[in-house]
């Protein structure tokens, strides 16, 4: 049975249509005009228990809106959602005990007290008895490499320590579905890697389902065998990251360094010439012919050095969004 199932999910916001300036304000006051803006339209997907799924898309694509619908914070305008067998918008206690939402830019820990106090509150709220809570805190703290930080006021923690403590608080009730909105936002490279490996470990150890958004492609490549790409509210891709890369970039770039300069016409047989500067050559080769072309290049030309470059995924997605005409 699927852990998360979204069927034709859509959300339309009604926004006030107001002209800027004082005159616009007054006019709006007298005669209110509204516009319906679709934030998410007809999104369908399903996630199996234990899957880790990355949620990609530029700012304003509808990622957060979708996450909020999946957690039941906002009601869908159309379609249906089911998470762990519950309808999220009914916000039943049993549903709330099974999920968690972590937002990288917002915090729920009590600012002036040590994280342990917030954890105590969460333990009571979720009805976890003290001994069990102690055990879970110890386990999670160990996985997160948190120690005496849990005894220091939150305001005195670094951003990375704070995020780890947030994760601990969000996972104390051992949810089986984790929704993570930019969990590594603003963290330095080391802290990002730590959070990443923790999430992977949590997924492995408890078989939890993870759905996460991130601006850092490294998070996605490291954690998510499967990605959902959302753009202007619509689902554009559902599959592996490699498939997405292939779909977006059917060619690879082959960089050559030759012993001596050769005329441009030499390269037509191997691929499309992108750049030729003396002994340095850049060719675009279709993926399916890559192995054959590279073998022939090495065999037939005086090659000193050869390198196949993976096109950077950020750039590809960026290109896609620029290419895609606004609907």
């Amino acid at each position: 049975m699927a852990m998360i199932r979204a069927l034709g999910l859509g959300k339309t916001f009604r926004v006030a249509d107001k002209q800027p300036g004082l005159a616009g304000t007054l006019r709006h006051f007298v005669q209110r005009r509204h516009r319906d803006v679709p934030a998410v339209r007809d999104v369908s997907f399903s996630v199996e228990p234990g899957e880790v799924v990355g949620f990609l898309g530029p700012n304003g694509a509808g990622k957060t809106t979708t996450l909020k619908m999946l957690t039941g914070l906002i009601h869908p305008s159309s379609g249906s959602v089911e998470v762990a067998g519950f309808r999220p918008q009914r916000r039943q206690v049993d549903f709330l005990r099974r999920i968690t939402l972590v937002m990288g830019n917002k915090q729920q820990l009590i600012w002036d007290l040590p994280p342990l106090d917030s954890l105590r509150v969460n333990a009571a709220v979720y009805g976890i008895d003290d001994a069990e809570a102690q055990r879970r805190i110890r386990d999670l703290a160990e996985m997160l490499e948190l120690g005496e930080e849990l005894r220091r006021p939150v305001r005195k923690l670094s951003l990375g320590q704070r995020m780890k403590a947030e994760l601990l608080a969000a996972l104390l009730h051992r949810p089986s579905v984790l929704f993570l909105d930019e969990p590594t936002l603003g963290l330095d490279v080391n802290a990002q890697a730590r959070v990443r490996s923790f999430l992977a470990e949590y997924n492995r150890r408890y078989g939890a389902t993870l759905l996460l958004t991130s601006h850092y492609m490294a998070d996605i490549t490291a954690l998510c065998p499967r990605v959902l790409l959302i753009h202007q509210g619509s689902l554009m891709h559902d599959g592996s990251l490699a498939e997405l890369t292939n779909r977006l970039a059917p060619c690879r770039e082959v960089r050559l360094e030759l012993r001596e300069p050769l005329p441009a016409s030499t390269f037509a047989a191997y691929g499309t010439l992108e750049d030729l500067q003396g002994r340095a050559v850049r060719l675009l080769v279709r993926r399916e012919r890559l192995t054959a072309s590279v073998a022939r290049l090495l065999a037939e030309l005086p090659v000193v050095d050869l390198e196949v470059a993976e096109p950077p995924i950020e750039e590809l997605i960026g290109q896609l969004f620029r290419r895609e005409p606004a609907r």
């Binding site: 957690t71 914070l73 968690t100 939402l101 937002m103 917002k106 915090q107 729920q108 709220v125 979720y126």
Partner: peptide, 9 residues
């Protein structure tokens, strides 16, 4: 902060 509060029972 309201959203996380709402997700707690």
């Amino acid at each position: 902060r309201l959203s996380p509060y709402l997700l707690q029972p």
